[in-house]
């Protein structure tokens, strides 16, 4: 984990606990990473081999492209970015918190329902926004 930007360790711990709860509630989630908009990991849980730091950086780029494309297309703010792959689904959701925006990335295993992942990510976002 990069150590510079997210210095509020108590808040980080609370968000980490929320990620654990999310993964417990949705067994199809194989990885979840919470990161800053510029790609630093804040908290993560993982059941896959991908480095959370790498996921955080890729999430930053992917969400930035989604936001820019939404804006250029006149669609206003980008709410989430979804990647449906042959062996699973990735959902990226932007969370506007009191201090700074964060990005949540959820990686769902093959067969995971998109609706379930979206619902879980939005529930998480609503709770994390109050942290």
């Amino acid at each position: 984990m990069f150590d510079q930007p997210f210095r509020d360790s108590a808040r980080s711990s609370r968000l980490q606990a929320r990620l654990v709860a999310l993964a417990d509630a949705v067994p199809d989630v194989v990885e979840a990473v919470l990161s800053t908009e510029d790609g630093f990991e804040v908290a993560s849980i993982g059941r896959s081999s991908v480095s959370p730091a790498k996921v955080a950086a890729m999430t930053s780029s992917l969400h930035a492209v989604g936001a820019t494309m939404s804006d250029e297309s006149g669609l206003a703010a980008c709410r989430n970015v979804i990647v449906e792959a042959a062996a699973g689904t990735i959902v990226i959701v932007r969370i506007a918190t009191r201090e700074t925006a964060l990005l949540l990335t959820i990686v769902g295993r093959h067969g995971a329902l998109l609706g379930t992942l979206l619902f879980a990510s939005r529930e998480f976002a609503a709770a994390a926004a109050k942290e």
């Binding site: 510079q4 930007p5 510029d38 630093f40 820019t68």
Partner: peptide
């Protein structure tokens, strides 16, 4: 076209 985001790494 820009994909700028807030910089949290001011260090």
């Amino acid at each position: 076209v820009s994909t700028d985001v807030p910089n949290s790494d001011l260090g």
